[in-house]
Design a binder for these strands. Structure first.
Length: 814
DNA sequence: ATTATCCGGGG
DNA sequence: GTGTACGGATAAT
């Protein structure tokens, strides 16, 4: 008998002799990688019987048999249990099945039996079920007892007779290896993994930097390793992963690009990518949206976590490696022209040295980003109790749902089923009465103060005991009504609701951490606080999310009603205190200081907070010297957020303006940004107007360089397959007529030229059009003016004035 | 208003 | 693999 402690990094299962064996991978405190096999866990689900004659039902269940390729599926045994269904105690049967994949099969076979009301928890993946039932926290210390086994495996294997949580100590410094590839991709062509080879592959770890390539070129860099062929590059990649022994293999968009690409290239050479610790292969699943998995090594796609979870709290609205690293690390990608890579490769030129450096830098940024966000991911892993691989790929609603599922087990609450498609569509028809919006009067304002009510909804849920099981309970007919016209909603005042309880716990845990954070500045604690905040803030949205298991429309309505009630209180108090309320939406209030000082504004928050119930808190977000609120089109009644603010440091916060898309001409994007900069930064509307007029004049005299009026659009299918011939399709037809092979993925760059008729009849390819030919009127009317129109409307300038020569506008008083 | 199409990340 | 998982914005009809 051996006892072993290890940090649990990854979990999967395999079928051995028609039985499931859980594989737990991890690293011991002294740095050795290990695997623990646990064959003692059985798959099961729950049955909710219709009547009390359980014996007949049990006898019937014992006879069920479903055959499959893997062998027969059958019920091993049934157990009587008591669990809560929607917060009410019920008698259920726990049905134990012989194999994990038998669970959905057996459930389908019995679901419609007359003696069965419903089945539950038949779609919880086996490995997740194991973690939940055993109360194991991945990334923390686990203790296993058992016998050493002789197994075909890259790491020692222990056959366990006992597995349990040792303590909550987390693996804070896992071994990370970042990977990034550069591929052959001649100008303008889409990514084609089956045709184009991988040219370079960079690996970056702790004291380990390497670029593997298969072309000899002049270089002095020691980290560059030249191998004879692409197949050797892939072979070397395998060897290096095996030697470095990472816990985590990290990439940036590597679920969607690097690893599927490596997979495709390896398949081409019939090379086994058996880098899994049990010698299993790198597994790429899904079409379109792919994911990549390696047994025993956690593949982290750091882009996915940043995009899905961190993006909301970031400034940038593009998530390229360059932009994200720039914001989070203060360091960007190397500036190279990637269109030069393919020609440089063909010429074996010394320029390839620059690309190798670029490749290594990308892997370094990926490594540093992983280090940076890993504490946040690990905190979610610890709070929710699922593996890092899973947490990495989850959206807000999934994080919330799995947190609730984990808590449900602890509260003996059964997990409701996911709604069938029809029910989801029905839910989507229901409209929640939205949050309170105090419409801004369009205009340019000085000295703006913003308050934020960030934890409003979580604190409402906790304070008012909001939960599906406490809604309109029969035991409290006299409970206070939710402040809402036309509805008589109540929530139980006698027993605590399940969701209210667990969100209150989240809030309380965060409050304790915040106290600690005031004493010490600890990045792990900060990450934990952030994770708890993100999770509790996502609860409200989850309750109104059609595919949610714990969907509750009335709960959502009630939270919103209380939200409107509390924000109205703040607006009222501010007005009573003679502040000018500019704007309010949901959980934030924008005030204009006017004659008041910033100190007055801070004192106001403190006064408000004294009047609020314990859990609620209004935060002083920031001061902005200038801001502009823009009117929305009549048809956009719902689009309230359209404003731009500038802070003391000169950085702009722009919300709701035309998002910068690549199929907008650069001249329009550039002009919009410059106009906002002049108006907010310099406060000079005349100058901004003059700027637009000069751009228009330049367009009219065709002085604006052609590359700034080129519109880029990507083809998504073959030219002949389009039902609607848009401008980019017309341009692609011209390209095709010229004999160029265009297809899905190709970027079409076109220019709209002068003339009459439909736009698609006037498009020319970038290289066909002359500087003199582009249609200034099109670019003025459809690109530049729409981008700045509403900004100027705020200043009382109408579209006509853009084109008038130097006339005195209504801007005078501004 | 509803339906079709495109985009993102990656080279 | 206790299967099948994008989500949001915009242009076209």
């Amino acid at each position: 008998m051996t006892t072993l402690r290890f940090y649990l990094t990854d979990i999967s299962y395999r079928i051995l002799n028609k039985k499931a064996v859980i594989h737990l991978y991890g690293r011991t405190p002294d740095g050795k990688q290990v695997c623990v096999h646990d064959a003692r866990f059985e798959p099961y689900f729950y049955v909710w019987p219709k009547d009390d004659d359980l014996q007949t039902l049990k006898n019937d269940l014992a006879t069920v048999r479903q055959s499959s390729k893997e062998g027969d599926f059958f019920v091993v045994r049934t157990e009587d249990i008591t669990k809560r269904v929607n917060e009410q105690e019920q008698r259920l049967l726990k049905v134990v099945v012989n194999m994990p994949s038998g669970v959905p099969e057996i459930k389908d076979a019995i679901r419609k039996w007359p003696g069965i009301k419903d089945c539950f928890e038949y779609d919880i993946k086996f490995a997740r079920r194991y973690l939940i039932d055993k109360c194991l926290q991945p990334m923390t210390l686990i203790e296993a007892t058992g016998e050493q086994m002789v197994e075909e495996s890259r790491v020692p294997v222990l056959k366990a007779t006992s597995v349990k949580q040792a303590n909550e100590e987390a693996l804070t410094t896992p071994r990370i290896l970042a990977v990034d590839i550069e591929t052959y991709n001649p100008l303008g062509k889409r990514v084609m993994p089956d045709k184009h080879p991988i040219l370079m592959l960079a690996l970056y770890g702790d004291g380990f930097h390497k670029v593997i390539t298969w072309k000899q070129f002049p270089t002095h860099e020691k980290y560059i390793e030249v191998v004879p062929s692409e197949a050797d590059l892939l072979q070397r990649f395998k060897e290096l992963v095996d030697e470095y022994k990472p816990d985590i293999l990290a990439g940036y968009f590597s679920d969607g690009f690097d690893l599927p690409y490596i997979r495709t290239r390896a398949d081409k050479y019939r090379l086994k990518l058996d880098i899994g610790l049990d010698h299993s292969e790198l597994k790429v699943s899904g079409r379109g949206q792919t994911t990549a998995q390696i047994a025993g090594i956690v593949h982290v796609d750091v882009f996915k976590f940043i995009r899905k979870i961190i993006s909301r709290s970031m400034e940038t609205d593009v998530f390229t490696l360059d932009a994200v690293a720039g914001e989070l690390l203060g360091e960007g990608k190397h500036d190279v022209d990637l269109d030069r890579l393919a020609p440089a490769w063909d010429a074996a030129s010394e320029e390839l040295d620059t690309f190798a450096k670029y490749n290594l830098q990308d892997s370094k940024l990926t490594y540093d980003l992983t280090l940076k966000v890993l504490p946040n991911m690990i905190e979610f892993v610890k709070i929710i109790g699922l593996p890092l691989w899973d947490i990495n790929r989850m959206s807000f609603s999934q994080l919330v749902e799995w947190y609730i599922i984990k808590q449900a087990a602890a509260f003996n609450e059964v997990t409701p089923n996911r709604p069938p498609y029809m029910q989801q569509s029905a839910r989507m028809q229901l409209r929640l009465k939205g949050a309170l919006v105090f419409e801004p009067t369009p205009g340019l304002y000085k000295d703006i103060v913003v308050y934020d009510y960030r934890s409003l909804y979580p604190s409402i849920i906790a304070s008012h005991n909001i939960s599906p099981g406490t809604f309109n309970c029969s035991c409290c007919p006299d409970a206070p009504l939710v402040p809402m016209e036309g509805e008589t909603y109540r929530f139980c005042t006698k027993k605590r609701g399940f969701l209210a309880t667990i969100i209150e716990d989240l809030i309380a845990r965060r409050a304790r951490i915040k106290v600690l954070l005031k004493q010490t500045k600890d990045t792990l604690l900060a990450a934990r606080s952030e994770a708890l905040k993100v999770l509790s803030n996502a609860f409200f949205g989850y309750l109104g999310f059609a595919p949610a298991r714990w969907y509750c429309f009335e709960c959502g309505q009630s939270i919103l009603a209380y939200g409107r009630y509390y924000i109205t209180k703040v607006i009222g108090s501010a007005q009573k205190d003679k502040f000018t309320v500019l704007y309010s939406d949901t959980d934030s209030v924008f005030l204009m200081l006017g004659k008041k000082s910033e100190d007055d504004a801070k004192a106001f928050v403190q006064r408000i907070n004294k009047e609020l119930p314990g859990l609620m808190e209004l935060e002083y977000e920031s001061f902005y010297p200038r801001g502009i609120f823009v009117a929305v089109k009549a048809s956009e009644a719902g689009a309230k957020k359209k404003y731009a603010l500038i802070d003391r440091k000169g950085s702009m916060k722009i919300r709701g303006f035309e998002t910068v898309r690549r199929n907008t001409a650069f001249i329009a994007k550039e002009t919009q940004k410059e106009v906002l900069r002049i108006i907010l930064g310099e406060g000079d509307g005349q100058k901004a107007l003059a700027h637009v007029k000069s751009v228009i004049a330049d367009l009219k005299s065709n002085k604006v360089p052609l590359e700034k009026v080129v519109i880029w659009t990507q083809l998504t299918r073959d030219v002949g397959e389009y039902a609607a011939i848009g401008p980019h399709v017309a341009a692609a037809q011209r390209l095709k007529a010229r004999g160029v092979d265009v297809g899905p993925g190709d970027m079409i760059k076109y220019v709209v030229t002068k003339g009459k008729g439909k736009i698609r009849d006037r498009v020319k390819l970038e290289d066909e059009a002359d500087q003199e030919e582009y249609d200034a009127d099109y670019y003025i009317e459809h690109q530049v003016i729409p981008a700045v129109e509403r900004i100027f409307a705020v200043l009382g300038v109408s579209v006509d004035e853009f084109t008038q020569q130097g006339s005195q506008s209504t801007l005078g008083g501004f």
